[in-house]
Design a protein around this nucleic acid. Structure first.
Length: 271
DNA sequence: GAAACTGCTCGGTTTACGTCA
DNA sequence: TCTGACGTAAACCGAGCAGTT
């Protein structure tokens, strides 16, 4: 009801952002989770046609469509498949991957060596039952990977190989770790952004309510003036003040311009 | 210039593992 | 102690893109 009324008043409430917000880097900085302080939404009350349109710039790429993931159970000709860690020595035994075809590849001697070194979990299998064990990186390995990630969120082949050698892991494992790490970073940043926008939305909703209320009051005031015949108008004593020259002052202080509310400069805004 | 190939990243998913009620 | 729910992270898959041949 209130909203409908407000829509007929030629006044417009608008939510806007600066026209050139600093878009976050596609590769988030290592010290992530810095809240996006560079763009600050604002709520305006103004005449229609003057209000800036709502523009929310979406960071990141949008060309990445979701994949359907039809599992075709086919051999991939591509390299870089590391297969599974700690796989049983006997290839005909497949205790894991319920029908799932793993990427196979021929391992070079260095990779075989690295794989041996990386199979610390299976090394703990003393009963010879090689159920699939997922590698858990040690604290030292994770710390070093984190340290490296802080320096570069992506690795070139040389860095990858060096890191793998240093950690006694396969390059593929390092690659996967960085891949997952980037995904986690992005997810976390998205959550931070989401929380930030939620708070903004909350604040702007409150401001919207306040402005709607103000609008209603102004409309009621306007109606009161237009409905009363001018001849019958009498000034209430409290408003009937005069300035020094005996001229009556305006009974109500009306702002000459719409009041634009900027939550950034207004301390009442929490966003 | 077009096509095939390669290598990489990304989004989404699966799954082993750890934790906790 | 056992167990199921749940979260986390390693591993995987398919798609897209850019560079090379």
């Amino acid at each position: 009801m209130g909203l409908d009324d407000a829509c007929n008043t030629c006044l417009v409430l608008g939510l806007g952002f600066p026209t050139t917000p600093e878009t976050p880097p596609t590769n988030p900085p290592p010290a992530m989770a810095a809240p996006a302080t560079s763009f600050e939404p604002f709520l305006t009350l103004g005449l229609s046609g003057e209000c800036c349109p709502l523009t929310v710039t979406e960071k990141g790429d949008v060309n990445k469509g979701g994949s359907l993931h039809h599992r075709h159970h086919e051999e991939l000709p591509t390299s870089a498949g590391a297969g599974d860690l700690c796989r049983p020595a006997s290839p005909d035994v497949s205790p894991f991957s319920s029908g799932r075809v793993k990427r196979e590849r021929e391992l070079s001697s260095e990779e075989v060596e690295a794989e041996k070194n990386s199979c610390r979990v299976s090394d703990e299998d003393e009963d010879g039952v090689n159920a699939r064990k997922k590698l858990r990186l040690t604290k030292e390995q994770s710390a070093l990977l984190e340290e490296s990630f802080k320096q570069h969120s992506t690795l070139n082949p040389n860095q990858k190989q060096a890191l793998a050698t240093q950690l006694s892991l396969k390059p593929r494992q390092v690659e996967v770790w960085f891949q997952n790490r980037r995904a986690r970073t992005k997810l976390k940043q998205t959550e931070v952004d989401c929380e930030f926008l939620k708070r903004c939305c909350e604040t702007l909703t409150n401001e919207n309510r306040r402005l709607q209320k103000e609008l209603q009051e102004l409309k009621a005031l306007k109606m009161a003036y237009t409905n009363i015949p001018a001849a019958t108008l009498t000034m209430c004593p409290s408003c009937e003040r005069t300035d020094g020259d005996g001229n009556r002052k305006k009974p109500f202080p009306m702002p000459s311009q719409p009041r634009f509310y900027n939550h950034v400069t207004n301390p009442s805004a929490a966003c």
